[in-house]
């Protein structure tokens, strides 16, 4: 039994070790600054590759996804725990969980084939509204909308992490002591005021870590993002806008999956994977620490 437990620890350690081992030779040959360069030509001699563009698209798509998902997820969790009648609460929670069971390739397929055209349509009200009001920020300005834009990827990612954030938030809201809720009610607080005084403050750390776990999931999501994002042409100038295409760590690796022919080239992709591993590890670890601290209190 202990062997099985230790095997799990070993497994995670091995992931880090192997990825590092296979990444180091390519990183040593790399003639571009790995962290700050946007170039990606791992099969030239010497290879030149950097992750700046990947990091940007990965992080921005995931953060936008989190910002979109968390308010809705908290709302759904409050709906299930505080508003829905008992008989409705269980099936509703169940249906939200079903969303988590949808395979990511299906999210990608639906995103690009069904949701994308709705959003990218020239007369899309949502997009124009955002552009008109926030277009002065480079993030929201557009020089032309790519069919597979980062914003579309963010929406789909938001849908994908919604059930995770909802489930965990629901759990912490259920743990709010009755005494806290009754204290607010007895003071003459309305339902909403009770939630603001007793439920949300108690649940805040839980919601934060739930959001982090959702963020971690979004950062590493592969196939949905790969399907949705249109890959910029080689040599095209970098476009930070949400309306442009782009590549994330995961989609870069997935797009090249069939072409790992030389160890040097593979090493470059594994380096990108290693960075993704480190980033998701950090995000998840922080989230878990917040959760476990809550439990001890």
């Amino acid at each position: 039994m202990r062997g099985a437990g230790l095997a799990v620890v070993l497994l995670v350690a091995l992931v880090g070790i192997f990825l590092t081992w296979k990444a180091v030779p390519s990183l040593l040959h790399n003639k571009a600054p790995f962290l700050t360069s946007r170039v990606w030509s791992p099969d030239t001699n010497p290879p030149r590759f950097g992750i700046a563009a990947l990091l940007w698209t990965t992080v921005i798509s995931s953060i936008v996804a989190m910002l979109l998902a968390v308010p809705v997820a908290v709302g759904v969790a409050l709906f299930i725990t505080q508003y829905a009648p008992k008989r409705l609460a269980t099936p509703v929670a169940y249906v939200v969980d079903l969303l988590a069971a949808v395979p990511s390739i299906i999210f990608g397929l639906w995103g690009i084939a069904v949701l994308g055209p709705v959003l990218a349509a020239p007369n899309s009200g949502l997009r124009q509204g955002i552009e008109n009001s926030l277009g002065w920020i480079p993030l929201f300005s557009s020089t032309g909308v790519s069919a597979g834009n980062v914003f579309l990827a963010s929406i789909v990612l938001a849908i994908m992490i919604l059930p995770i954030v909802t489930a965990l938030s629901r759990e912490v809201f259920l743990q709010v002591p009755r005494a806290n809720i009754e204290a607010a009610q007895a003071l003459g607080a309305t339902k909403w005021e009770t939630i603001r005084m007793a439920v949300l403050p108690f649940g805040r750390p839980g919601v934060i870590s739930a959001s982090m776990l959702g963020l971690g999931r979004a950062l590493g999501e592969t196939i949905a993002v790969t399907i949705i994002l249109s890959t910029p042409n080689i040599g095209a100038p970098f476009d930070p806008s949400l309306w442009a295409g782009g590549e994330t760590f995961a989609s870069k690796i997935a797009n090249a999956a069939g072409e790992f022919d030389t160890p040097q080239k593979t090493g470059a992709y594994i380096s990108a994977g290693l960075v993704l591993f480190v980033v998701t590890f950090a995000v998840n670890a922080v989230a878990r620490v917040v959760i476990s601290r809550r439990k001890e209190v």
């Binding site: 806290n180 009754e182 204290a183 003071l187 607080a189 309305t190 007793a198 403050p201 108690f202």
Partner: peptide, 20 residues
């Protein structure tokens, strides 16, 4: 809600808002 504003209550276990 109006009733509870007019009639105050103290509970069996002290229940101050923990985050306040």
């Amino acid at each position: 809600v109006a009733v509870r504003r007019t009639v105050g209550m103290v509970f069996q276990r002290p229940n101050p808002f923990p985050t306040m």
